[in-house]
């Protein structure tokens, strides 16, 4: 990934510009320092309050595995784990998550070892285009942590916040059931 150093300077310059008192009527508000621990790594971001957690991850931390599918909480593609719970990163602001621990799809893999769910998704062909996949996997990890799904019908209902337009629904639920019933999750 090429984040040129002049790019960083450029961004700082832009932010600095927005900080200056301006002559026009549209005043931006103050930059906020936002501390996020993302995939185990501590970050300190300087952001305007209007930056969603999703855009902070994608545009400021270059973690583009988390996808934008609707930006309005209607599709689940942006699902991440926040302090262990699955949430929609498009419907929250980065500043609201000050101090939080975030896990994105990039943090699900352990070293070189795929998470059992990731392997199960491959084995069950639980995706076609792959765009909803990071959200489905993060959501399923959250589902496991919640521990409320007993039956296949429960899993289907509790995974219904993640849409898949390719129609890979059966593969997705099969993959989750395999890992769930095999006890292959924490």
């Amino acid at each position: 990934m090429f984040i040129a150093s002049d790019d960083i300077f450029h961004k700082v310059w832009i932010l600095a510009k927005t900080l200056n008192p301006m002559e026009n009527e549209h005043q931006f508000n103050e930059l906020q320092t936002v501390r996020l621990k993302v995939n185990g790594e501590q970050h300190e971001l300087l952001l305007l309050p209007w930056v969603s957690l999703l855009d902070a991850l994608r545009e400021h931390l270059d973690l583009t595995g988390t996808k934008k599918g609707c930006d309005h909480g209607q599709c689940g593609a942006c699902t991440v784990l926040c302090d262990g719970k699955r949430i929609l990163s498009c419907l929250t602001l980065a500043v609201l998550k000050e101090g939080a621990e975030i896990t994105t799809i990039e943090g699900v893999v352990r070293g070189n070892q795929l998470h059992p769910l990731q392997q199960a998704f491959i084995d069950h062909d639980a995706f076609q285009c792959g765009y909803c996949t990071p959200g489905q996997i993060c959501s399923a990890i959250g589902l496991f942590k919640e521990g409320k799904a007993k039956t296949r019908e429960d899993v289907k209902e509790l995974m219904s916040g993640n849409l898949c337009r390719c129609g890979a629904n059966i593969g997705i639920i099969d993959a989750i059931m395999e890992v769930k019933d095999g006890g292959m999750y924490e």
Partner: peptide, 9 residues
């Protein structure tokens, strides 16, 4: 109502 993610938020 909503989805599991939204209910968590």
């Amino acid at each position: 109502g909503a989805s599991a993610q939204i209910r968590n938020m």
